[in-house]
């Protein structure tokens, strides 16, 4: 059989390189000049990063399987983050969940305290997320931004309806913004443009195109991410931001990751199934172009890290 030549695409664009972290530990994501793991075609200077989700108070609604895996560490975000780093997390996503008005409605002072404690415990770069209520997000993220000055963290979520305050906080303290849009390529791009219009540099944005879990719209997510990445590689600078995916959150809220009763025997053991659900979701999104995947289960962190390492090995 005659040898088949591998078709090689020449891309005009490059994904922005986003720097995170302080002097003690830096992390760069992005910088690709080709599609995921196609080493023969272009450069992939930095492996996709694995983040672990840490909440500022124990998440009561998490599956028992998950809670058991972290144990007492969950009682304190700093210890949780420390343990996450021991499991191999490249960075920590710190959810200020307690600030939600339906939760403990904590304010900027508490946020400042939590962020300061986590930052003084771990060197790993931080991504800080608000509770998802515009008013509260602005309150706690501005405080968090000040507390994290000098450590270049990422702050989110900036959304079309609420991004200006968070962006201002990013600009004032040299942080990175996480821009979230609802599974739509044009909206993703437009939000990036709006953020850049305010004066934040394109290399200070991570974009979350919003992801679904395996079996819950994953293929649609995949194709939006793929198209964003293609647009970025074709030279569209406003679509060339590294992508950020909240995998754990999506995977662990699905029935398949939680149900133990009233399901077919073929579904098998819950622990195996739930972990696979998170792992497969993460793997799929990495293949779609994710640069940061946020995971919940420590074993999945290790599995994904190992898989990334294999995929990053050039033959």
């Amino acid at each position: 059989m005659p040898p088949v030549e591998t078709p090689v695409e020449k891309w005009a664009g490059k994904i922005h390189e986003v720097n995170l972290g302080g002097d003690a530990r830096r992390l760069v994501v992005g910088g690709e000049t080709t599609l995921p793991f196609l080493h023969f075609e272009g450069a992939i200077p930095h492996p996709p990063a694995v983040a672990v989700e840490v909440q500022d108070r124990p998440p009561a609604s998490w599956a028992p399987e998950l809670r058991a895996s972290w144990g007492e560490a969950m009682e304190d975000p700093a210890s949780w983050a420390k343990k996450a780093v021991e499991y191999g997390a490249d960075l920590i996503v710190l959810y200020l969940s307690s600030a939600h008005p339906d939760d403990q409605n904590t304010g900027p002072q508490e946020a400042k305290k939590t962020v300061t404690r986590v930052l003084s415990t771990v060197d790993a770069p931080l991504i800080i997320l608000g509770p998802g209520i515009a008013e509260k997000d602005n309150e706690v993220l501005v405080a968090a931004a000040e507390a994290a000055a000098g450590r270049r963290v990422a702050l989110g979520f900036c959304e079309q309806k609420n991004y200006r305050t968070i962006i201002a906080a990013c600009m004032a303290n040299n942080h990175v913004a996480v821009a979230k849009t609802p599974v739509e390529i044009n909206l993703a791009k437009q939000l990036n443009i709006l953020i850049c219009d305010m004066g934040l540099a394109p290399d200070s944005i991570l974009m979350d195109p919003t992801t679904g879990a395996l079996g819950y719209g994953l293929e649609y997510t995949y194709s939006v991410m793929e198209r964003l990445r293609l647009a970025g590689l074709q030279g569209d600078k406003m679509a060339a931001m590294p992508m950020f995916c909240t995998v754990g959150e999506e995977a662990w809220r699905q029935k398949e990751a939680r149900a133990t009763e009233g399901i077919p025997a073929a579904w098998g053991d819950i622990a195996t199934r739930a972990l696979r659900w998170e792992e497969l979701t993460a793997m799929t999104l990495l293949l779609a172009g994710a640069d940061v995947v946020v995971l919940r289960h420590p074993q999945v962190v290790q599995r994904i890290k190992a898989t990334i390492q294999k995929l990053m090995t050039k033959e």
């Binding site: 602005n138 200006r164 962006i167 201002a168 004032a172």
Partner: peptide, 12 residues
């Protein structure tokens, strides 16, 4: 400056 600056930048 930072407190007001953020409000001037975000349009409030």
């Amino acid at each position: 400056l930072r407190t007001w600056g953020i409000q001037l930048v975000d349009g409030r």
